[in-house]
Simulated scan of single mutants.
Amino acid sequence: MFVYIATPLTLLLFFLAKKLYSISPHPLLNPVLISIFSLISVLLVFAVPYQDYQQGTKVITALLEPAIVALAVPLYLQLKVIKARLKYILLSCLVSVLVAFFCAFYVMPLFGADLITAASFAGQSVTTPIAMEISKNLQGIVSLTAAMVIFAGIIGASIGLPFLKLCKVKNAQAIGVAIGCASHALGTAKVLEENEESGAFSSIALIICAILSALIMPMLYQWLIQ
């Protein structure tokens, strides 16, 4: 029975969360974050198997891919400006990927993480399908990677912009690249609401980071374990 109400319930909770956020735009009231916790609560309270929920929301899942592709629209509109800044974007994305690798395999072990856990965290700042493939290639825990990707996106969408403002970052292009490198599609969707130019730069940054991560991280990992 829950299979038939999963999609309407998900949409209802999300739109209610957006309404709450419009009334009180606090970072902790991010609609995605509130929706996730609300759905988890419903599944736990009514003892609904996750498989039933997953089956009932296949329509929403299928729409994720065209939703990501739609992020290319602001990118196309800002194409001339992006071309002029492309080398700086590429450099920023490369640094982002290297920092992610360094934090996963050199910083996390200082806090007791083993190699498998570190590998699961390495690709958390790129979009979910690519992050999961990276985790698989690095022999990480794919489910843990997926959870951390969502967590990174929510954090970026919730506090990314306030944090950058606190750091006195005012340039729309720099804000977009920072969010795109750190918080993939969720962060990009949020920054796009604020500024179209930032959204375009965030879109290209998330794409480049995904490509560089898929190419570089497996090679760095092989070099690390030799």
Rank of each mutant, 00 (worst) to 15 (best):
F2P: 02
V3E: 14
I5L: 09
T7I: 06
L9T: 09
T10W: 04
T10P: 06
L12G: 10
Y21F: 14
P25S: 01
L39N: 03
V42F: 06
L44A: 13
V45S: 11
V45E: 03
F46W: 12
A47L: 13
A47N: 15
Y53C: 09
Y53K: 02
Q55F: 13
K58C: 02
K58V: 11
V59K: 13
A62Y: 11
P74N: 01
P74W: 00
Y76Q: 06
Y76H: 13
Q78K: 10
L79F: 15
K83Y: 14
K83V: 15
A84T: 11
L86V: 14
K87N: 15
C93I: 11
C93R: 05
L94A: 14
L98F: 12
A100C: 11
F101D: 08
F102V: 04
Y106P: 06
F111P: 08
A113G: 05
L115S: 12
T117H: 01
A119M: 04
A122R: 03
V126A: 09
T127Q: 11
A131R: 05
K136R: 15
F151P: 08
S158M: 04
I159K: 00
G160Q: 05
L164A: 05
C167F: 14
V169P: 07
N171W: 06
A172L: 13
Q173F: 06
A178F: 02
A182F: 08
S183T: 00
T188H: 02
T188R: 11
T188V: 06
E194A: 12
N195P: 08
G199E: 04
A200T: 10
F201W: 02
S202L: 02
L206E: 06
I208N: 05
A210N: 10
L212I: 15
A214E: 07
P218K: 09
M219D: 12
L220M: 05
Q222D: 13
Q222W: 12
W223C: 10
L224T: 10
I225D: 06
